[in-house]
Design a protein around this nucleic acid. Structure first.
Lengths: 338, 338
DNA sequence: TTTTTTACCGCAATCGATTGCGGTATTGTT
DNA sequence: AACAATACCGCAATCGATTGCGGTAAAAAA
């Protein structure tokens, strides 16, 4: 026979009372006599009774569970966000179901569907890079399930959002490069379809404009992972003699670029200063340590969960959608000059 | 009113048939006429009907969900394991609930309890560092719920296990240090209660013994995180002049130690060679790149899930518990001599 | 035309827990 | 002693889906 954890009916049968009595006794309902209550409680304790969360959710029409969809938990930024979400969620009695889309559109659809099937009370989502058709999110939205996007939002839907000010972050750190003497800054960016990458590119361009530096097409490369840096190694080294700074769209790209340059004999930051984005823990472990922008993932997660909680408690319809923008903070380290 | 996704009863009412008919029509039961079946299917499609996973699990007494408990998903090793688990699980129609214990005993108890409450079909667990009393696991075991431990196992319970050969890994990499000229190797290890750390320490000692090197008490430090390295900075620098190698129990510790030494003017690996454990992606991003042991988290996750799947399908009782040992592979890089 | 077969569908129990309502005893009130 | 008021507990419906069994038609066979 299968395991079959003890249910409320098992207790009822064993004690010769009805299930209703057991249920009421366990939650101290005044209708139950002290004698019966104690007897039931003692027995429940003995057999280590635990209410079936599935049955409860079904009955109550509330699962006390929220779903999270992130691209990949291996990235420190996302796992920090998850920790932020969890800490708030747990403190409010919510449980969490985490799903990885692996930056894959179909996997993301599956994830969302599975979470809906499990009747989560709300959804916290960071979109996959490859998501072009947001039909699955629109479906959630129409079902009135509270949903908050973080970092990579779905522009087609009017929901609460928690995002980083990518534009100003990029502008800030690019300005820092310029202020510390850089004049020809190479940008390693994402493919064009990723909104966040575009924001950072625009911030970079704005900083150049602020300082009357003419942007150059050949100083903007599409290259946003460590692998792509290795693949673009020749390209980077070709432009290396003509640049004095690099702003990469994320830390691992920046660090790998540093690696390539140092192997080719360049001194960081004397010959070429390098800056990243995100403040991954790696940034502080490499030599030289990487100047970058701290993104406060943990706080973003907390904020996202708080927004969701308000939707879950309030009679949602009244609130208009809110956008929380986090300003990334410049972490000046040794890969840029002072 | 609350959202209320459409149920099988809603369809039944809307179409003037019984819920049973809808249920059968949707799964092509021969008792239902083609006309009725098509009508129901079309309607279900239109309203985007999806069966309630909670109700299904309750009825079928099978949730098709397995629970994972890991210390912290921020660590690459654990998130790789999770990916390995997920890929196998998804391919077999299982969903996954991930919980973080944050290396906290009570949180771990809560997690296990919550997963049991949700009636997961099985459990995959890596114990928290602070877990001394395994009562919650014993309770699961007694309930006959299949459970597989990975990496940090519970010695008190006889379950399937997927582990790294920490002893031989440590022995291997320490031997490598010795073979490349090291004679006085500092070991940065974990506190004594962590089994894994003890295995690695023993492997280190064995390698010394293999090469007729007398171990020295002052060359074994309890120091297993980046923070602790910074705190033990003085201690490390004090012994630095007397050593020519370091074997750290994990990569971030090794890398931070490298940092401390390089800042003090030491050359890695000429003056002091450094080796880690785990092959975190950071190991390949620092300069010099870190020699370490690859742990194959992804494969370990796959293996753990496969073991669990067998327990879930077979009439479990017959199989005796199995132990899968993964041999870590030496990744020779630039932090050690050749 | 009567009987048998087949096609098609609904009733009701079940999974585990909750809750309004109603029903006995028992105690309290005139 | 007759009636009202508690105290205490069970019945049954509900949440959503499944399934054995039974029932009513229409079609086929006698």
């Amino acid at each position: 026979m299968k395991h079959h954890l003890t249910s409320i009916n098992d207790i009822a049968k064993a004690l010769g009372v009805s299930a209703s009595t057991v249920s009421r006794a366990l939650k101290d309902h005044p209708d139950i006599s002290t004698a019966t209550r104690e007897k039931i409680k003692a027995f429940a304790e003995k057999v280590n009774y635990r209410p079936n969360a599935l049955a409860l959710s079904l009955k109550k029409q509330v699962s006390n569970t929220i779903g999270i969809v992130v691209p990949e938990i291996v990235h420190h930024f996302f796992s920090s966000i998850i920790s932020g979400i969890e800490d708030i969620a747990y403190s409010k009695g919510y449980r969490v179901m985490i799903c990885q889309s692996n930056e894959d559109f179909q996997r993301e659809e599956m994830n969302v569907q599975a979470l809906m099937d499990h009747r989560v009370d709300g959804l916290l989502v960071c979109m996959s890079k490859t998501t072009v058709d947001p039909a699955h999110f629109i479906s959630v939205f129409k079902s009135q399930i509270p949903m908050v996007f973080f970092d990579r939002v779905c522009k087609e839907i009017d929901t609460d959002r928690v995002i980083t000010d990518d534009f100003n972050g990029a502008r800030l750190i690019t300005s820092h490069l310029i202020d510390t003497g850089c004049k020809r800054i190479l940008h390693l960016g994402t493919p064009a379809q990723l909104d966040i990458g575009q924001e950072r590119l625009q911030g970079y361009l704005q900083a150049l404009k602020d300082h009357n530096i003419t942007p150059r097409r050949d100083l903007i490369l599409t290259c946003d992972t460590a692998e792509k840096v290795w693949n673009s190694k020749d390209n980077i080294l070709k432009s290396a003699p003509h640049i004095d700074g690099i702003f990469a769209v994320n830390d691992s790209t920046a660090i790998t670029a540093m690696h390539v340059l140092m192997n080719a004999g360049y001194n960081i930051p004397k010959d070429i200063a390098v800056a990243g984005f995100g403040d991954d823990p790696v940034a502080n472990m490499v030599n030289p340590t990487l100047t970058t922008l701290e993104q406060q993932g943990y706080q973003m997660g907390q904020e996202a969960m708080n927004l969701l909680l308000e939707r879950l408690s309030n009679n949602e319809l009244s609130i208009t959608s809110r956008v929380k923008i986090f300003q990334p903070e410049l972490k000046k380290r040794n890969s840029t000059r002072s």
